[in-house]
Amino acid sequence: MVNRNDVEAAARRIEGYIRPTPSYEVRPGLWFKLELLQHSGSFKARGAFNRILTAREAGTLPAAGVVAASGGNAGLGVAYAAATLGVRAEVFVPVTAPATKVARLRELGAHVHQHGREYAEAYAASAALVAQTGAMFVHAYDQPEIVAGQGTLGLELPPADTVLVAVGGGGLIAGVAAAIGDKTRIVAVEPVGVPTLHAALAAGAPVDVGVDSVAGDSLGARRVGAIAFDLVVRNNVASVLVSDDAIVEARRRLWREHRLAVEHGAAAALAGLDQIDDPGTTVVVLCGANTDPSTLYAEPAHAAG
């Protein structure tokens, strides 16, 4: 299991490669963690650097480079880390991935493959390439090095009673739970249309769910990771669901009131705040900025997946 020692080791390993992003108090007792300012536009660079650097230290990084499957953000994190470290990167994304993310992947030098309409289909195609080439797979959320790397965000948070984290596959919330779950109330926020963690907690184990949300490009994993499920249960992480309408309004409010341009997945965390009783001092993690700014004023028609 990933623990705080692993997170602290990851923080030392990736220091100098990632940005320690700021938090600011928007009103008394409410803080925003501005992880949208991270390299590649989301927290994913943290885990990607930790995974690749760990392999390099161990002498196990193959000449074929790395392969990732992603709704977009994990691929961007891997592409950025690989470009920085001089490693070849092959990234698989669904055909539904936002054009802004696909274009940025190519700008970073990744070899981009588009397969299927959901993350699960891109994942299957990426696994076939790993088997063929011997490249190292960098999982979007369910590897110990990835979880420990994402958890470094938790070490940067101001003291708080409650931390709200949006959940897709669960790598970020797993890392935050490993870092501070023993002393802080952590709340997982998911779209109603992609309740991966919520369904797993109800079933007592990870299960497959449908993917139907405006935030599906970044929170569109069909099944929560095994590492995340274990850490969530061990740390008594609470889970709430939010509607697409609430996510859209939170995203608009972040732009209207704070001039923060975030993607829908990041806005989901703020949308969950209204469902928390007595949150005390609260940190909302704004985890990603890979979005089309033109949609901040007029939302596009929602399409499933």
Rank of each mutant, 00 (worst) to 15 (best):
E8T: 13
P206T: 08
E15D: 15
L61R: 01
H113K: 13
G134M: 11
S70E: 12
A81F: 05
G168L: 08
L53Q: 07
G220I: 01
V285A: 14
G71W: 00
L164Y: 07
V284W: 00
P279S: 13
F92S: 09
G170V: 04
V187L: 05
Q143I: 08
Q275R: 13
E8S: 05
V66E: 07
G71R: 06
W255E: 13
E107G: 13
R185G: 07
V192M: 09
H111C: 14
D245M: 08
G181W: 09
V112G: 15
S213V: 03
R4T: 07
N50H: 10
A250I: 03
V130I: 14
W255C: 12
S294M: 10
Q132S: 14
A271S: 03
V284D: 01
V262K: 00
H115G: 09
Q150K: 11
A99C: 04
L34E: 04
D208Y: 07
V91I: 01
A177E: 06
R12S: 14
L260R: 03
G265C: 00
V207I: 09
A238W: 00
E299D: 14
G181R: 12
I14T: 08
Y80C: 09
P206G: 11
V112F: 10
N73S: 08
I146R: 11
D6T: 10
Y24K: 06
Q132V: 07
R106F: 02
A83Q: 13
A122C: 05
L36Q: 09
A298S: 14
Q38A: 07
G175H: 02
A48W: 05
E35W: 04
V187H: 12
G169H: 04
H111P: 07
K44H: 04
A166I: 00
G305S: 14
V240W: 05
P300A: 02
H113W: 15
T100Y: 14
T96C: 06
T100D: 09
P20H: 08
Q38F: 03
K183A: 12
V209Q: 06
V78G: 13
G109M: 02
A267R: 11
T295V: 13
G175Y: 03
Y141C: 01
S126M: 15
A205F: 07
G71M: 02
V207S: 08
Y24A: 06
T21S: 01
V207H: 04
Y80A: 10
A79C: 02
H39I: 10
A45N: 06
S294Y: 12
